[in-house]
Design a protein around this nucleic acid. Sequence first.
DNA 1: CTAACTTTGTGAAGAAATTCACAAGCCCAG
DNA 2: CTGGGCTTGTGAATTTCTTCACAAAGTTAG
Lengths: 208, 208
Amino acid sequence: MKRVPDSTVRRLSLYLGFLEELEESGEATVSSDVLARLGGTTSAQVRKDLSIFGSFGKRGLGYFVPELTTRLREILGLGRDWHVCIVGAGKIGLALAQYPGFREKGFHVSALYDASTAKVGTRLDSIPVRDVGRLAADAETEHFDIGVIAVPAEGAQFVADTMVAAGIKAIMNFAPVQIAVPADVVTRTVNMGLEFEALSFALANLSK
Amino acid sequence: MKRVPDSTVRRLSLYLGFLEELEESGEATVSSDVLARLGGTTSAQVRKDLSIFGSFGKRGLGYFVPELTTRLREILGLGRDWHVCIVGAGKIGLALAQYPGFREKGFHVSALYDASTAKVGTRLDSIPVRDVGRLAADAETEHFDIGVIAVPAEGAQFVADTMVAAGIKAIMNFAPVQIAVPADVVTRTVNMGLEFEALSFALANLSK
DNA sequence: CTAACTTTGTGAAGAAATTCACAAGCCCAG
DNA sequence: CTGGGCTTGTGAATTTCTTCACAAAGTTAG
């Protein structure tokens, strides 16, 4: 398939969000122009984004909301449940595990891992907290699609290596460091520090 | 000044992180090639990124670590303290207010705001929790550089409007919705759902 | 001091993403 | 059934970002 720009994937997610709202409010169709306004982009951009995957609209009318919603879910791989394991039962790890919107989207947290003996053995909303050393062994019986790294910077690469060894192909990294993985493993790093520094930059250069 | 791509700002933040580590480990100089390797980019990219702001290197040698560190901090506006107010004393708001790395970078949380009467009046590590209705009035006496939106989707636009009315020019939005603001206000939205959906997309299209 | 080597800074080339602009298709009113 | 009005889908133009490639400048060894 044609290469899909990362920016397009982000926008498709956005569009999907709007479509779900539109569906809720009973709209039957929506035009690229309306989606563009909601998403802060242009109608041509919306159409180009969608055209990568096919032509879903009807000229003179727009897109059928339920149909496009379904198609976008398919495209984004949201039709199914993804099994997620989280390493690091600290603030971020626990918040993620408990966040209801997360499960609603099909991301099912099947286990939490931590290195602290105090936390291991406890449970959080029926999710067991296990020793991180068991991750590789557990992965043999339980399948994990996505691994979340929610440990401090120092431990991130080690956790990533463990996940890779356990056969996990997609990693979401919340530690503020780059992690190295083989080419067939996808990673995304969410680094809040970077976001704030971008704001700082914007503020420092407002008038220039 | 020449327009600075968003991607460049992100990379500068990354480089700064590496430089801080290099400084700690006592490296005197660093080449664009080393920075590129650490940041997963190319040496030409590193040099282009820096060249927007001037020429800081020495041919045949590279960049002096302490000097480049200082320059990047200046460029990113990290030489000073930014006053931050957070609206929403829920999980995200509290986590952010307590995160030590945040203050170390110069982001000083001066107040938390919430709508719940149960939370208003309490304190968190000496940070007062106040009623959100007071934000505009407080902004007259206290100066806020950055406003953080850490409320559910429904309340986000209202909070943004309040912040804009209070004269805040930079907003970090953690609510999973787009917010509309005047052109002279900078916003960044951190939407974890989008990140996970991007992983989902990658997984669903791995072999294609 | 010289020659071989390293590394920057930057125009020019190339690639990628966005925007333009319009033919083609579909709806709807009369 | 016809004509005016919308809206899509998409090549082409444009803009933006990245990579190439090399002269210029500095370093280091002998």
